[in-house]
Simulated assay, not measured.
Amino acid sequence: MKIFSGDERALTAARLKINEEFNKNKHVKEEDAIKAMIKLAEDVERELRTQVIQAREIKPGVFEAKVNEDTVMLDNVPFDEHAVIENSPKSRRSCCQSESKSK
């Protein structure tokens, strides 16, 4: 309800998915399987709570984002064109997969 507040379409879709998963697994009786499904549900809830934001267009090309206290906020590092490695054979590094194969 908190994550999709005010978005009836998203709330309906979430309710349908939750009910579908419950009905699909309501026959499960093994304690370990039930604990694993509860852990998955908690992980999904945490991911939604911390990673999903709501945004709406308030005028053409301008959006308003709705975040909450649980939303993960990362530093936005501006692009620096001088940080790009030049395209010359000397400056090219092999990819990490190539490096690990040679070890």
Rank of each mutant, 00 (worst) to 15 (best):
L40M: 11
A55D: 00
K39M: 14
S94D: 12
E45M: 07
A36K: 15
K26Q: 13
G61I: 09
V84W: 01
L40Y: 09
K66E: 05
E30A: 13
L11N: 10
Q51R: 15
Q51I: 05
A55Q: 08
E99P: 04
D80L: 03
E47L: 11
R9I: 12
H27T: 09
K90G: 07
F63E: 06
K39H: 14
R46F: 03
R9L: 10
V62D: 02
S98P: 00
H82Y: 09
C95Y: 10
E86L: 03
E81V: 10
V72G: 00
K101F: 13
A41C: 07
I58N: 07
E20Y: 11
V84H: 00
S98C: 14
R15T: 12
I38F: 05
S5V: 06
F79I: 14
P78A: 03
P89A: 01
I53D: 00
Q97G: 12
E8R: 15
E31K: 14
F22I: 13
V28H: 03
C95L: 10
E31A: 08
V44H: 03
S5T: 11
F79H: 13
K101I: 14
E99R: 15
K66Q: 08
K29E: 11
A41S: 13
T12W: 03
M37C: 02
G61H: 10
E45Y: 06
K59G: 10
N19C: 07
V52H: 02
Q97N: 15
D80V: 02
N19E: 13
D75W: 02
E47Q: 07
R92P: 00
L74T: 12
E86W: 01
N23T: 15
E21I: 02
